[in-house]
């Protein structure tokens, strides 16, 4: 019986490249545990850049964006098409320009930014904090996403409030939960947690904060400290 069990990445077919974001060892690794769980190695790989053609209206949109931006390759790191959704990974310095181009051009016209979603990848060094902006075009009935990343050491992203005022509270919420500082906007304050709360709760290094529950002699630990096999 082999000591180390490679668990292959669970990936959808048809995606060209994969980017390894994290490699996880099983629990009880290195502790002398013989159950086999210690040898589990799981590579976490997110879908990487999709090669052209993207399909549907995506190619046309990418071409229009190329013509509108002064330097498309500097602004857009990569384009990912997964499960039929288009995501532009944009470098943070060019985020406002890209958003303005997407909003104003008549063939693109993404008038609404429906929110900001933060994600924390603690082991993807240099790109730990991501902010995802889903955009909606009511005129053309289309959707796409913008994704921006920033490192933990310098967690700033330029604010899109000047382009889409609707991201006001969403940016405050993302700041509250992840610590991403959105620059160039008034009043970036906490919105969900109390104003003097320390830390940013939805980061992966922030504990879930539960308490152990005791019932007739047995004590169940909070969910984030229980045994986990995945």
């Amino acid at each position: 019986m082999s000591e180390s069990t490679e668990q292959t990445e669970v990936v959808p077919a048809g995606v060209a490249a994969l980017e390894v974001v994290d490699v996880r060892q099983g629990m009880f690794h290195g502790s002398g545990d013989t159950s086999g769980y210690g040898g589990l190695v799981r590579t976490v790989a997110m879908p990487g850049a999709t090669p052209r053609p993207y399909g549907g209206w995506y190619d046309e949109a990418a071409d229009t964006l190329t013509s509108l931006l002064p330097d498309y390759d500097a602004a857009v790191e990569k384009v990912v098409v997964e499960h039929g959704d288009l995501t532009f990974h944009v470098r943070r310095e060019h985020l406002v320009d890209v958003a303005r181009a997407l909003r104003d051009d008549p063939t693109l016209r993404f008038e609404m930014c429906v929110g900001v979603s933060g994600v924390h990848y603690p082991h993807d060094s240099g790109r730990e904090l991501h902010a995802i902006y889903p955009l909606l075009s009511v005129t053309h009935n289309r959707r796409l996403r913008l994704e921006v990343s920033c490192p933990d050491g310098d967690p700033t992203i330029p604010s899109l409030m000047g382009v889409y005022p609707s991201v006001d509270w969403h940016e405050r919420e993302t700041f509250d939960f992840f610590g991403i500082v959105f620059t160039g906007r008034p009043d970036l304050t906490r919105i969900q947690m109390p104003d003097d709360w320390p830390g940013h709760p939805q980061r992966k290094d922030y504990p879930l904060g539960g308490i152990p529950v005791e019932y007739k002699g047995a004590e169940i630990p909070p969910p984030d400290t229980r045994r986990s096999y995945s």
Binding site: M193, P201, Y206, P207, L208, G209, G210, I211, V213, P222, P223
Partner: peptide
């Protein structure tokens, strides 16, 4: 008792 939300945000 805090219910299903055993976490930082809810008073247990």
């Amino acid at each position: 008792s805090g219910g299903m939300f055993n976490n930082y945000a809810i008073v247990q």
